[in-house]
């Protein structure tokens, strides 16, 4: 269970507050207008932005004092999710241990993760030799081997076409969600939210609201979100 308790974030002039709970194992779409604070919220949970006040609790433990890598959090950014000078296998293996020389066992696990996302045998390729969809799969494979219980995605597949994106979301569900991870996914697309998410967490005008069931919220959005959803 993720609890944001009296959380106040400040980034320059921008402010965001949050007081909410995300149940364990839920797939949550984080939605709201651009500039509303979605990425800021994810940054704070991942540990890139220290809160001005409040606590971020995972399973009862405060994450705020922990360094990003020490948090039970895996993250995918909008882009630059792979190191261009490392092979797909090396990129995945980094999720197991920050070293360029994975052990035999680590290689096997990375290979298995690549196979799981449909990239069996492509471990020796460099990112530039992979298509956009394949690059996303490599990043997903790394999240799989990381085995972090809380996964954050900041519009990770936004650069892909609609079909590929749907495929990636389905794959995310099949793999990550199947092993009980909790997912916070920033998206602008109500279709994506419907397809993937159990809950929607609206972030509007500097405030993150408690998550509500996705279908209900999309069918009857509150006024602040209505303008955004159109």
């Amino acid at each position: 269970m993720l609890v944001l308790e009296g959380l106040h974030l400040r980034a320059g002039d921008f402010r965001l507050t949050a007081d909410l709970t995300v149940p364990k194992g839920a797939a949550v779409a984080v939605m709201g207008p651009s500039g509303g604070g979605k990425s800021t919220l994810l940054s704070a949970i991942a540990g890139f932005l220290a809160p001005a006040a409040g606590r971020i609790l995972w399973a009862g433990r405060d994450l705020v004092p922990l360094a990003p890598a020490a948090r039970p959090v895996g993250i995918l950014f909008q882009d630059n999710n792979l190191f261009p000078h490392l092979t797909a296998l090396q990129n995945v293996a980094l999720g197991l241990r920050p070293s360029l020389r994975p052990t035999e066992a680590e290689r096997d696990r990375a290979e298995a993760a690549l196979a799981q996302v449909g990239l069996a045998g492509l471990g020796k390729r460099y990112p530039a030799e992979l298509s956009g969809g394949q690059q996303s799969r490599v990043a997903l494979a790394r999240l799989l081997v990381q085995e972090r219980p809380l996964v954050l995605m900041d519009e990770p597949f936004a650069a892909l076409g609609p079909a590929l994106r749907a495929e990636m979301l389905a794959l995310t569900r099949q793999t990550l969600m199947a092993r009980g991870a909790t997912l916070l996914l920033v998206t602008h697309d109500p279709g994506d939210a419907r397809a993937l998410a159990d809950l929607i967490l609206p972030v509007v005008e500097g405030r993150a609201h408690p998550p509500r069931p996705a279908a209900a919220l999309l069918d009857d959005p509150p006024p602040a979100l209505r303008a955004y959803l159109g």
Binding site: I75, H85, P98
Partner: peptide, 27 residues
């Protein structure tokens, strides 16, 4: 700027960060 946050999230710090991330990219 491009890869620092990802490296941090993966716990690649200190000498390892220099060896794995910085030096190869700045080659």
């Amino acid at each position: 700027a491009r890869h620092g946050r990802l490296a941090t999230a993966l716990g690649i710090t200190g000498w390892r960060r220099l060896r794995i991330l910085i030096l190869p990219l700045a080659r």
